[in-house]
Nucleic acid binder design. Structure first.
Length: 800
RNA sequence: GCGAAAGUGGCGGAACUGGUAGACGCGCGAGACUUAGGAUCUCGUGGCCCUGUGCCGUGGGGGUUCGAGUCCCCCCUUUCGCACCA
């Protein structure tokens, strides 16, 4: 192919040119007018990054590129795609790094943000830089504080003292979600138990709706399952056990197995249970106090170790089992947790492994009440029987099946006012207090006379002061508590001297509402403008990592639901569609700094260009499953773009006129396949189809027709926007490929082959193939097949 | 323990409702063009006896079917969530 050798594919040149032009033309930005009046709004959201000092890593780029490809595809189909990006820059991550480097976060974060911005522009994302957020800016966290006040007013925020996870290294309280396998999620230090007064959001009130709504949203199944698990619904009953010798005192237990009521041979209270004092007899008080003290010191983690042998002490007290009328002893043990159910259980050692273990250790009676057909109910058990069976030794309930038993016993308890059907959730309230510096101050003032008083909304933001000594200490309070000039303030209600809340809020609160802010960043008098919000939300597609399946995503749903109930939003689910992308590994191994095997993006973009890098990342494997990054692999996509360029670029040498019929069919098949797969994020297979098509166009060294290659350009554009713009322009189009609906269409009739190939099989083996003209009827086909089969002299089982 | 996903060439991965397994790409082999090339192009590339109209091949074992990577049953392995949650 003769063409100017100077006019080779030069990614750096092409990319610099188009990034400049997009910026110049405002291609990706919505003006304040435009964002009010989109014709076909499409809100394309991706999880905003934490701007680390290291800069963007491949994981970020993979996530953003996939989301960007999705957004650009919809844009080429004529949608008004809003694709914002921002920075989640508050929090322990940033603060710890600032401490390590000895740089104040107020100086460090802007630097990181600038570096991230540069890198994000470089990868060619369709970001609207006029609608960006930085959670550490007062104009953003002002509204985070406003959000707290709305929940406070709605009685969804409360202050209470609670045992919390305390990380002795980060010197702060952690949410349950941030404790992974007993250690701090961030620094992997073992977590301890402490009691501190803190602010909680009542997310557990929303557990039923958070669970039920999952059926109505289009999310990755894995993510929904993770949330379902986390919310943890259990169906059962609450049962009242009257305490012997304490008239009117009853112990309430939650159980999922009311059918085993008559097998409850003892009870166990959590050591912190409020009734422990009352039921404990003088004789046992010393033992009980000693045990409680020990359990109170132990961190929440060790306490939950499954493999730990059971410990506990007898209180001396007894309860009446309402099923049998028998007196059963009350014990305390740390295997019963105060924060789940009622903090008390009826122990059924015959049918619960933990109770069996405890009963065996302390020589408590074990009574079988469920037995499979044909098994002697009195035969001794050597382990808990948790299988199905018939009720036995259960007074009037004998003979019922397990399932009937659950219903009947619960119903009977209800009618006798001894209990009720109950649903329990594992989900705990969300502790949002952090005894740290780098976050939005919680907008509350404590007044001796008025109690906790919310900061009036017109006094927001409560600015985070610049404090040079922002190091956390072991005092259990925030570094802000050392800044008297800041925390001393008059009470907003009575004017008396008062004191600000010195804790800041959890970073997850910042990210629980940022998607509401993006479209409204032009508005500085409201958190989110009602009309704009109605236009753009809920988010059409949200793409992000599954590591946030139960943290961020659940909080964002909760905040949206709460704002809906408080009258601020007219929808209760923020993300109509969520897709989790997969993870990128390198040469089969996880990437980590310590292994020194991280992919550094900048040099790769220098050498091959952002288009090739994007294309390669999307080609690695199914987007929702991730892929294995192999350094040599980038040659494939790079070669493809070079060939694409060389096929098109001397535009004058392209043939005019209709495509070759063979190529035309392949073209329409390719358009069909790619158009079908793109909305489902089938990026790797779409790219493969386009490569296959280009191979067909170039096969035998033939020169391409314009009509053969031109539709390929918009199809490649979501992946490789720069080269696509350049080729589109060279093909004579003005105004940019992303302006207008330039996605190609296909003719289904043209995707079909003229002949159909039939395989003739005899006894499961292919004996012949024959070509049939399209439209030939089945009878003809069968006749032909049988004839072929006969020729092959196999007479049995011939079929098509 | 509970829940979920996945096992296909040397590697990443294709295969829509059951219909010629291995698309696309990497790697590898041969050749061409070159002073040279880790550039470019062409051809080949699951295994086996390499004789064929040949045999075996999608973690293992059964089954349904004219036909199974795909559907059913049992087992094995890996990865990821949750986990003393009553």
């Amino acid at each position: 192919m003769a063409h100017d050798p100077q006019d080779r594919y030069a990614p750096r040149k092409v990319e610099a040119k188009w990034q400049y032009l997009w910026d110049e033309r405002g291609t990706n930005r919505f003006t304040p007018e435009a964002i009010r009046t989109p014709e076909r709004p499409f809100y394309n959201l991706m999880m905003f990054p934490y701007p680390s000092a290291e800069g963007l890593h491949v994981g970020n780029i993979y996530a953003f590129t996939g989301a960007d490809v999705h957004g650009r595809f919809h844009r080429l189909q004529g949608k008004d795609v809003f694709e914002p990006i921002g920075f989640d820059a508050f929090g322990i991550h940033s603060e710890n790094f600032a401490l390590k480097m000895g740089i104040h976060p107020m100086d460090l974060i802007p630097r990181n943000v600038a570096n991230f911005t540069r890198q994000l522009r470089r990868i060619g994302g369709m970001f609207d830089w006029d609608h960006t957020v930085d959670t550490t800016q007062p104009e953003y966290y002002r509204w985070t504080q406003w959000l707290f006040l709305q929940l406070f007013k709605g009685k969804l925020a409360e202050r209470k003292e609670a045992p919390v996870n305390w990380c002795p290294s980060c010197m702060t309280v952690l949410a349950n979600e941030q404790v992974v396998g007993g250690v701090c999620e961030r620094c992997e230090t073992a977590v301890e138990q402490r009691r501190i007064a803190q602010w909680f959001f009542k997310i557990s009130d929303f557990a039923p709706r958070l669970l039920e709504n999952l059926d109505r949203i289009d999310w990755s199944e894995t993510t929904k399952k993770a949330q379902e698990n986390w919310i943890g619904r259990s169906d059962g009953a609450e049962i009242h056990f009257a305490a012997i010798g304490h008239e009117g005192t009853r112990v309430e237990v939650f159980t999922t197995r009311p059918d085993t009521l008559c097998g409850a041979t003892y009870m166990v209270l959590a050591p912190e249970h409020p009734l422990v004092d009352r039921v404990t007899t003088d004789e046992h008080r010393a033992d009980v106090e000693a045990y409680r003290a020990r359990a109170g010191r132990m961190d929440l983690v060790t306490r939950k170790k499954t493999d730990k042998t059971k410990t506990g002490v007898f209180t001396g007290g007894y309860c009446e089992n309402p099923g049998t009328g028998e007196e059963v002893p009350i014990w305390i043990a740390d295997y019963v947790l105060m924060e789940y159910g009622t903090g008390a259980i009826m122990a059924v050692p015959a049918h619960d492994e933990r109770d069996f273990e405890f009963a065996t250790a302390f020589d408590l009676p074990i009574r079988r009440v469920i037995a499979p057909e044909g098994v002697d109910p009195e035969a001794p058990l050597d382990e808990a029987y948790t299988g199905d069976g018939i009720l036995v030794n259960s007074e009037g309930f004998d003979g019922l099946t397990m399932e009937e038993g659950k219903r009947v016993v619960a119903g009977w308890l209800g009618s006798e006012d001894l209990g009720k059907v109950m649903v329990n959730y594992r989900l705990h309230d969300w502790c949002i207090s952090r005894q740290r510096y780098w976050g939005p101050p919680i907008p509350i003032v404590y007044c001796e006379a008025c109690g906790p008083v919310p900061v009036p909304e017109d006094q927001l933001p409560v600015l985070l002061p610049r404090v040079e000594d922002f190091k956390p200490d072991d005092s259990g309070v925030s570094p802000l508590a050392r800044v008297e000039s800041w925390y001393r303030t008059p009470c907003p209600d009575c004017g008396a001297p008062a004191r600000r809340e010195t804790d800041v809020s959890d970073t997850f609160l910042d990210s629980a509402w940022y998607f509401l802010r993006y479209p409204s960043t032009d508005h500085d008098t409201v958190a989110f403008d009602p009309a704009t919000t109605r236009t753009w939300l809920p988010v059409d597609t949200y793409i992000g990592g599954n590591e946030h399946a139960v943290l961020h995503l659940l909080y964002a749903r909760f905040i949206t639901m709460a704002l809906h109930d408080l009258g601020h939003l007219d929808f209760e689910e923020p993300f109509s569609r969520f897709r989790a992308h997969g993870l990128i590994v390198r040469e089969g191994a996880k990437m980590s700094k310590s292994k020194g095997n991280v992919v550094v993006p900048d040099p790769i973009i220098d050498e091959y260009g952002a288009d090739t890098f994007r294309l390669y990342l999307m080609f690695l494997g199914p987007y929702e499953e991730g892929g294995d990054y192999r350094d040599a692999g980038i040659q494939g996509p790079f070669g493809f773009l070079k060939r694409l360029w060389e096929t098109i670029v001397p535009v004058e040498s392209l043939r005019e006129g209709a495509p070759d019929p063979e190529v035309e069919r392949k073209l329409h098949q390719t358009i069909e396949q790619v158009t079908r797969q793109m909305p489902e994020l089938g990026f790797n297979t779409s790219i493969a189809a386009m490569m296959e098509y280009l191979n067909a166009v170039r096969s035998g060294g033939r020169s391409a027709a314009r009509s053969e290659v031109e539709p390929l350009v918009p199809m490649i554009a979501p992946f490789c926007p720069h080269i696509a713009e350049e080729l589109w322009e060279r093909l004579g189009h003005t105004g940019g490929i992303f302006e207008g609906a330039n996605w190609p269409s296909y003719d289904p009739a043209l995707t079909l082959a003229d002949t159909v190939t039939l395989a003739v099989q005899v006894n499961g083996k292919v004996r012949a193939t024959l070509e049939l003209a399209r439209g030939a009827d089945e009878a003809t086909a069968l006749d032909l097949a049988r004839a072929e089969a006969n020729v092959a002299r196999h007479l049995e089982g011939a079929s098509v």
